[in-house]
């Protein structure tokens, strides 16, 4: 297990310096780009390819190794196999969401069991989208302090205060949750070590053994999480925390010119993707007169 994935990593990159408010919107724009359905497999491949390049650049900026992302995929192999099975065993086009493109032709045909290359392409698309999703989230969390993230959330939620939406409380809850992810991971590591010393084997053994092993991890984890939350609540109350109180801030978010640049760039990319998606614009045909079908 890679516990460092998803943590804030203190580097001094451009991505780190971008205002979290801009970053959140930009990242959401990028996610929408990735999930926009394109008209043909050529355009799906092209759009995903371009997104991949963009994401790799972002990852390089935050210095997260791509091998880290691929490493996190290892635990998803089961899902990948299931995906492939579902897509190849199901009759084509009976699947919702991702229409299987039959222009790619038939991969094989065994006594009526027809498998199209398009099925593989569809499965590959889903997988690719997943990987990109994970990578983008990692870019955001690796380059933004959890506290800054919640300030940004709170800032976006502030207008809702007019309709008595508890913006500050929600932001506080989120920031506490984010703050405790690494702590819980450390706890997990520590409890696993203690139980391994008592002869628990987390990686081998049958189902019954695995369940026992897991319960020896999860029960102490919950106990420590609850006791922590109680302690935290008490500590906050002792210091006179009042969610309704008006408070000032030590760190104030400042919007700079490169935040505009980043935001406009990503929104422009989103606009382009949406345009291509809606109009069915095919650059290969338009510029080169090719019909890649």
């Amino acid at each position: 297990m890679n516990f460092s994935l998803g943590r804030y990593i203190p580097y001094e990159s451009i991505i780190h310096k971008i205002d979290p408010r801009a970053k959140i919107v930009g990242i959401i724009a990028l996610m929408v780009c990735i999930f926009l359905p394109m008209r043909s497999w050529t355009m799906t491949a092209t759009s995903l390819g371009l997104s991949t390049i963009l994401v790799i650049i972002l990852l390089a900026c935050t210095r997260t190794g791509i091998h880290n992302i691929l490493g996190s995929l290892k635990s998803m192999w089961f899902m990948v196999i299931m995906l492939l099975l579902v897509y190849t065993l199901m009759p084509y086009n009976s699947l919702p969401n991702i229409p299987v493109d039959d222009n790619l032709g038939v991969a094989w045909n065994l006594n009526g069991w027809t498998v199209y290359w398009g099925s593989f392409a569809a499965a590959g698309t889903i997988l690719m989208r997943l990987v990109l999703m994970i990578s983008i989230t990692v870019v955001l969390t690796a380059s933004t302090k959890p506290l800054d993230l919640t300030y940004a959330f709170e800032w976006y939620l502030t207008p809702l205060k007019v309709i008595h939406f508890p913006a500050h409380e929600v932001a506080m809850t989120i920031s506490i949750a984010l703050r405790f992810i690494p702590t819980l991971m450390d706890d997990t590591k520590r409890i696993m070590k203690a139980q391994e010393s008592r002869g628990v084997d987390f990686s081998h053994g049958g189902l019954g053994k695995k369940i026992r092993a897991l319960s020896s991890l999860i029960v102490p984890l919950f106990v420590s999480a609850f006791s922590r939350s109680e302690e935290l609540a008490n500590a906050m109350e002792c210091r006179g925390y009042d969610p309704k109180a008006k408070r000032t801030r030590y760190r104030i978010l400042r919007w700079k010119w490169f935040d505009w640049v980043f935001l406009i760039l990503l929104l422009a990319i989103l606009a382009l993707y949406i345009y291509v998606c809606v109009s069915g614009f095919d650059p290969y045909n338009f510029f080169f007169g090719l019909t890649l079908q």
């Binding site: 520590r190 070590k193 203690a194 391994e196 010393s197 081998h204 319960s215 029960v219 102490p220």
Partner: peptide
């Protein structure tokens, strides 16, 4: 898991951690 005989080793060497009360379940 490339290390061999780890279970045997852990049977011979008992480790009590700092604040072991976290391991109760």
């Amino acid at each position: 898991r490339q290390l061999k005989k780890v279970p045997e080793l852990r049977r011979e060497v008992g480790v009590v951690f700092q604040f072991p009360e976290y391991q109760l379940f």
